[in-house]
Design a protein around this nucleic acid. Structure first.
Lengths: 219, 219
DNA sequence: TTATGATTCATACGTTCGTTTTAATCATAA
DNA sequence: TTATGATTAAAACGAACGTATGAATCATAA
């Protein structure tokens, strides 16, 4: 009773992840999912109960690892710092770099999951927003505190906003990678798609840190 | 034959704009739209032909003005500069500031349209992506060139990427304003919602400029 | 006032949606 | 080998979807 279940569940999750990424939650039907997964239509309701629960499981499968990893990395950084503030660049890398490096790990969803996450953050159905709120809260609070400590001269409200902006830039950098290329018809010469991710990380990190440490606005 | 048509069309466009923003394109039905607009179900197909055409008209109604305004402002800046490069901060403000200031103008869609635009850029159905590509291309190219000229020491590819990141931060700052508050349970104290937009603009501008002018990444 | 074209209305069409049901098939323990 | 529970399979459910139709109603010009 083991192998069949695991296979079917995973095949459904993989197909759902890809299709939700490509067409969104509302734009993807159960028949598309089960068709692509090569399983019976009723299998989703049998294994997950409903389409909503399936969506949640798609996220949980990836986010559980991501959030644990983010916690673990920050634990290490703070232990190494021994009470002193952790460098902002290290905090930013621990949060966003960890996320981006998932894109290179197909076992953890790779680029597909990251693009799904990116687009979901701006199209939150009520039920998935509530779910993400619960999944994210603890980690967010930890990183927020770390940034407060690392940047004592920057008002806390400003740091919160800038964290917000960093999340946006990152989401979009991933979710919109293909979309924007079409929109703007920009040519990023001299790079094939394997290069692109390796170079995206330092590029985005420079941008994020520049924004985080920018001159404070005068109202 | 004038007043009824205009009223009905506008009522439909207003309702569609709000509902597409709140629930997405696929998540909004014709019956919701016509119900909220207080018009007959068949009115959408009569006036716009189809749901897709309605979506396009929702965007066109706002983007036509926005793109003209962006062109006009950049024309003025370049005329004032008289052949010299325009300051990066002025270019960024012309592009993103013009967008953000739409949020305060209810006659141009206000915050509702901006949030719709933000979420649509990361959930591009094929048909709307092609539409946005056409609407945006000319303006994008103009601004891209202006930034190349303003930042001759920064590689063009880097500027393109950073434009990309700036778009993301901005989209998200608007589209996710309410969403992220719930996700993170952050408290932005001492600000009511009327203040928020006035303060968002300089905050975001500081961040964007910091990112645009950040130290170049070393690969 | 009447004729005409534009618009609104009620209603129905055919599809597709998520879900449920009931029976068949499978893997495993006794 | 047989009994049992887990899984898969085929089929159908009612509801909601976008769209189309034809009659009713409206505003306007002759």
């Amino acid at each position: 009773m083991e192998n069949r279940t695991v296979d079917t569940r995973e095949r459904i999750l993989d197909a759902a992840e890809r299709l939700f990424m490509a067409h969104g939650y509302e734009g993807t039907s159960m028949r598309q999912i089960t068709g692509e997964a090569g399983v019976n239509l009723a299998a989703v309701n049998y294994h997950f109960g409903s389409k909503e629960s399936l969506m949640q499981e798609v996220f949980r499968r990836r986010l559980d690892w991501l959030n644990e990893e983010r916690m673990r990395v920050l634990d290490t950084l703070e232990a190494e710092a021994g009470g002193e503030p952790v460098k902002p660049s290290a905090i930013v890398d621990a949060f966003f770099g960890t996320l981006l490096r998932m894109a290179g790990d197909e076992n953890r969803g790779g680029m597909t999951f990251l693009r799904l996450l990116g687009r979901t953050l701006t199209e939150p159905s009520e039920f998935i927003r509530a779910f993400l709120a619960h999944e994210y809260k603890t980690v967010m609070d930890r990183y927020k505190e770390a940034l407060f400590k690392a940047l004592p001269e920057v008002p806390k409200a400003e740091i919160v906003w800038r964290f917000h902006f960093m999340l946006g830039a990152t989401s979009y950098a991933i979710a919109g990678t293909d979309a924007l290329r079409l929109v703007t018809d920009w040519q990023i010469e001299d790079e094939d798609s394997t290069d692109r991710l390796d170079r995206l990380v330092p590029r985005l990190m420079s941008f994020l840190l520049g924004g985080l440490r920018a001159q404070l606005p005068q109202f």
